[in-house]
Design a protein around this nucleic acid. Structure first.
Lengths: 135, 135
DNA sequence: ATTGACTCTCTAGCGACTATAGGGTTTATG
DNA sequence: CATAAACCCTATAGTCGCTAGAGAGTCAAT
């Protein structure tokens, strides 16, 4: 059942350095060591790190994930903090989505300003970029 | 017509440090200096920096902006590199948009798993986060 | 003469890692 | 049993696009 960091890395899809970084940032407990000072992990570590990875895929920061993990160790507290973290993150994602959609539109408009191989001095994109003054 | 860095900053909406950073990264030419070693700018500098700011608002990296500025100084070359930069950036934005939309959906689904003030041990969000194994 | 506002350079810090250097350990093969 | 390959260790520097701060100099007004 025991494994070293390389095996854990391939089981979780994380890099070895990322795992050590999470340990340093106290997102995972300091693991035991072998006689040769190698980190030793087990199935619990895999689950723990997969949880972290999944949260990272959702765009949560390490601090937010840390908060989620803290709540998990106090199972009798209410989970309003969890809801709060997720709600906050949803708001961040929604804001970012709106920004990116506006951006996409501007880029699309910009792209139509220039054909394939004009001389740069006639390039509509450059002209446009120099003329637009308001963001 | 001449101005110091603070005036340039308020004319462009950039921070003083950002302007100095752009100079260091060679996005703007090294400006002249006053007798007291103050950077001296003019209207051209304003245009130059507004161009950069506009590109940053579009999400272009400083390296990409540098490439655009390089093409601008060679007005007889074709602007295919410009098109290439913009096309590449559109692709990046589109990919990011798709990712964020998926993310948003997953977060929305997750949020329905838990009401307001359950005990953490019964929180559907935590359970969900621990069970989902594929990203 | 002094205050206050402005500017200078240099350095450190953010977040979430990645990459490297320079070593030690374990495992497989000859 | 010797050695080479594969793995692991710590510590440090780098990424990007800035921001914030220290400690010093410059300039305008009172």
């Amino acid at each position: 059942m025991n494994m070293k960091i390389g095996t854990l890395a391939s089981h979780t899809g994380l890099s070895i350095q990322a795992i050590r970084y999470y340990e340093q940032q106290e997102l995972v407990p300091t693991p035991g060591r072998s006689s040769g000072n190698y980190r030793i992990y087990d199935e619990t570590s895999v689950k723990h790190l997969v949880f972290i990875k999944h949260c990272r895929n959702l765009g949560l920061s390490l601090e937010e994930i840390k908060a989620l993990l803290r709540v998990r160790t106090k199972p009798d507290e209410t989970c309003s903090e969890i809801n709060h973290i997720i709600d906050h993150h949803v708001a961040v994602v929604d804001r970012r989505l709106t920004e990116l959609q506006e951006l996409r539109q501007q880029l699309g408009a910009l792209r139509t300003k220039c054909g394939e191989n004009q001389a740069a001095k006639d390039c509509g994109i450059l002209r446009e970029l120099f003329e637009i003054t308001s963001p």
